[in-house]
Write a protein that binds this DNA or RNA. Structure first.
Lengths: 191, 191
DNA sequence: GGTAGCCTATCTACCGGGAGGTAGGCTACC
DNA sequence: GGTAGCCTACCTCCCGGTAGATAGGCTACC
């Protein structure tokens, strides 16, 4: 097994575990069993839990950048772009998971400092992209929204992150994220 | 020290720790140090960590009921009532904390089943109260909102829970919750 | 009113288990 | 034959939890 392949498998498994149980409730034992190596071998790829967490969050930030660039390059309306963004979260909801960033943000006080920084980066990137897309939508006459784009961005991201957590806690089959999308566009489309 | 006084101190300390660090990142050692007894003595008051968590969440649900009854009995407008509700969360934000329920919901998959139920109760009580207050506000002509009250309730609670988490993760001094309140009322007050 | 017996709230001392992490050895492939 | 990748074996620390003792207070009966 190439080093990179194993490292990626470890990151994949860690991501699932953190999104399911949180940073403080997953162990090297879980990780080792999922990937099929011994716990000690994990240290060959990542010197410690902190570095694994950081690598994971950096990969997550890279994926976000890529996804947003993909959406931006699609040439669709701003409303469609925002819908694509929300769909990233709906897909997570469908898996019964919560956002990696949201999970880590909940455990923030117990996180190593570099990881806290990476979480913050994710939040800021998301907010900036939403705000910019809302702004373009207003400019293009798609939305009647008269408030600050940054406010709408904060409201959307908050509700998506909170929505994933509440959706899982309620345990039902209802699609909470679809509701949040509906309310969000109602806000944007009425003056 | 009376049994009840010690038990309350334990619950107080546990609540602070869970809101700061999460259910899986606080220990009997932390608790014992805060209250000033030995870890073994905790078991006299609560047989195990699960029963302590459940007692804590039940107390939290009682406090919610009391707070909502107080707001309902205040005879103010529905908008003022909703503002009072949001203030409960603003106060939490000011303390740099997140909601106990939100913290536990993030760790949901690792929680004992009864505790999961208590978390669900908290969410449902909150949503029902918000929806009912929004409905009354529409009836009384305070809001122009034409959507489903339950949708607005889900959106508000999601954004408040998510907002607390994001606010702490961003680490800044900005009041994110004030922004969320602004956007929420914008949604309610335009058709 | 003294004392026997029980209850409350805490203590010390210990347990098994699992956490993250380290040291050093084996194997197989360039 | 060096090194990449994984192993076994081990360490230390701390976790939640248990057992049993202790001190002090309340109750009730002679």
């Amino acid at each position: 097994m190439s080093s990179e392949a194993t490292a990626n498998k470890l990151l994949d498994a860690a991501q699932v575990l953190i999104q399911e149980r949180g940073y403080n409730a997953f162990s090297y034992k879980d990780l080792a069993e999922d990937v099929g190596i011994r716990t000690a071998s994990i240290h060959y790829h990542f010197p410690g839990k902190a570095s694994l967490g950081l690598a994971l969050m950096e990969r997550y930030n890279d994926e976000l950048r890529l996804a947003l660039a993909g959406i931006d390059g699609s040439g669709r309306t701003n409303k469609a772009k925002l819908k694509s963004f929300i769909k990233l979260y709906s897909d997570t909801e469908a898996r019964g998971a919560i956002c990696l960033c949201g999970s880590l943000a909940s455990d923030r006080e117990t996180l190593p400092e570099p990881l806290q920084g990476a979480v913050k980066t994710y939040i800021e990137s998301s907010e900036q992209w939403i705000a910019s897309t809302v702004k373009d939508g207003v400019r293009d006459g798609e939305f009647a929204y008269a408030g600050r784009p940054a406010d709408a961005a904060a409201a959307l991201l908050s509700s998506l992150q909170g929505g994933l957590i509440l959706s899982r806690a309620r345990g039902g089959t209802q699609s909470l994220l679809a509701t949040l999308q509906r309310v969000f566009f109602r806000t944007l489309e009425s003056a």
